[in-house]
């Protein structure tokens, strides 16, 4: 019996006199045995065998030409241009966002929607190969309650594409594989853990009109 076979047996948790006999005469295997047994205990932990349920598709990109999920609650026409203009003034200080020394390629002011009327925010975007890098900054939004997450969507008409989910809305960085030219509007929703890929009806922030790229 050779060392490799004995070490495999120890890792597998197998016992027997032939393994013990080898151990008795092999100092190298005796030294390694406690470590193999420690690794065997880790192998038995549930966490080792768990898989993530998501993917990075929300971070990176979608197949060219594919369609995003249908928007469930497209009732946003009530916001007047006057209110929007006031909002732009309110969040104007965010107009030039700089990250890593590079000014953003574009910024979008966000107003509190009916579920969070006092909230506000801004999304700054950097155009990168394959999509956009985003920084969302908000005020007036608490961290999501357990079992809920915030989700940022890029929207075009009633079509929405998720840029990712987050629990703490104070400062969020996301990557999305679509350009703002395709999806000019931005929406933030509060999502229950219901597995529904479409935006929920609980809108907390939205952009007020299609911004020009700065």
């Amino acid at each position: 019996m050779i060392c490799d076979d004995v070490r495999a047996a120890v890792l597998a948790g197998e016992t027997g006199t032939r393994y013990d006999d080898h151990m008795a005469g092999c100092p190298d295997c005796r030294i390694i045995r406690p470590e193999l047994e420690r690794l065997r205990r880790i192998l038995g932990e549930a966490a080792i065998w768990e898989d993530p349920s998501g993917s990075v598709d929300g971070l990176v990109t979608r197949a060219p030409g594919s369609r995003g999920p249908a928007l469930r609650a497209p009732h946003r026409g009530r916001w007047s241009l006057v209110a929007a203009a006031a909002l732009v003034a309110a969040v104007g200080l965010f107009a030039v966002v700089v990250v890593g020394g590079e000014p953003a390629d574009w910024t979008v002011p966000l107003a509190g929607a009916e579920s969070a009327p006092a909230a506000s925010g801004t999304v700054a975007g950097w155009n990168v190969d394959g999509g956009s890098r985003l920084v969302l900054e908000t005020s007036g939004l608490p961290p999501a309650a357990p079992g809920q997450t915030y989700e940022l969507w890029f929207m075009s008409g009633h079509e929405a594409f998720s840029a990712g989910t987050f629990a703490d809305p104070a400062s969020v960085q996301l990557m999305v594989g679509v350009s703002r030219r395709e999806y000019p509007n931005v929406l933030v929703t509060l999502e229950p853990a219901d597995g529904d890929p479409a935006p929920s009806a609980t809108w907390v922030l939205w952009s007020t009109w299609d911004e020009e790229e700065s």
Partner: peptide, 13 residues
């Protein structure tokens, strides 16, 4: 799950 997203976002950045 959140850590996985944050890891790959950071790696990409």
């Amino acid at each position: 799950e959140e850590a996985v997203q944050a890891t790959f976002l950071k790696a990409w950045q």
